[in-house]
Simulated assay, not measured.
Amino acid sequence: MPVLTFAAAAIKVDDGGPVLFRQERVGVAGEPFTMLKLRTMTVGTEQAGLGLLAGRNDPRTTRVGRVLRRASIDELPQLFNVLAGQMSLVGPRPTVRSQVDRYSARQMGRLRAHPGIAGWAQVNGRNQICWDRRIELDLWYIDNWSLRLDLVILWRALLTAVAGAGTYGADGVTQDFGSCQGEGGCRCGQAAGSHPRRRRGHPRTVAPLSADRTGDGQHPPPRVLAGGVA
């Protein structure tokens, strides 16, 4: 709360606009919800410049917004989405409807879990890897969920936020879904992601996700709240 309070005051002093940015995102099972963020851009930015995308030198980003984005502080209000049961601390990052509408049948499996503030794709390249790779990492996470894995992701997410890594794409601009396939600026190779080390005697079982497995009775990872697993 002290960090949120200080950031909110800085946003208000900077340009006098609203503190929060609200945007509809797609949650678990395709249900829409309103995601909260600290506003880092000028008011009405979705209809100007890069639209839903953002760039490192985007003129729409405010002075305070650049600092908040680099440290990922702008994501903190999503803790209220977690308390409302719309998000989890860990899970695939929520995307907008226009992107979900372009998912393949396999990629729709990403919606089996509650979206998270931090995710496996975010700690394995974030915006510097292409969407196909990001979604594959998210599907791997859903099929291999464990509390230990969530703790690994939370720790690595903290390190990523401190380093300010992966906030934008390799060319300085976040990419829309499908727009970076085959481009040299995206790290889509297998090396872009990694799996946590397992102790000897604890083999990893990876069940490949087929296109029709969204309704096969498998349980998505539980939502992780501040007091434990729910």
Rank of each mutant, 00 (worst) to 15 (best):
G184K: 09
S98R: 14
R134G: 03
G16M: 10
F177L: 15
A165I: 07
P208D: 11
I135R: 02
R25E: 00
P222S: 03
R198P: 00
G193Y: 05
G30V: 09
R112F: 00
G164E: 14
P18C: 06
V173R: 04
R148P: 00
G169T: 11
L147P: 02
A121C: 10
D101A: 13
G215Q: 12
Q190W: 11
V229H: 01
G182H: 05
P94C: 13
R187H: 13
A192G: 15
P59S: 06
L76K: 09
A105R: 14
N124A: 08
N81Q: 05
M87L: 04
P92T: 07
G119D: 10
A226Q: 06
T62N: 06
C130M: 02
S210G: 15
P92F: 01
R39Q: 10
W140I: 08
L76H: 10
C186I: 01
A7K: 06
G169A: 10
T160V: 15
T214Q: 15
L151V: 10
G228I: 12
H114Q: 12
L79E: 02
V152D: 13
G201Y: 00
A170I: 02
R60H: 09
D143G: 11
W145Q: 11
L50M: 03
H195T: 12
G65C: 02
V64S: 04
A29I: 00
N81S: 08
L76F: 15
V28R: 15
E136C: 01
A9F: 11
Q47L: 11
A105T: 04
T62L: 09
G178F: 14
A29V: 01
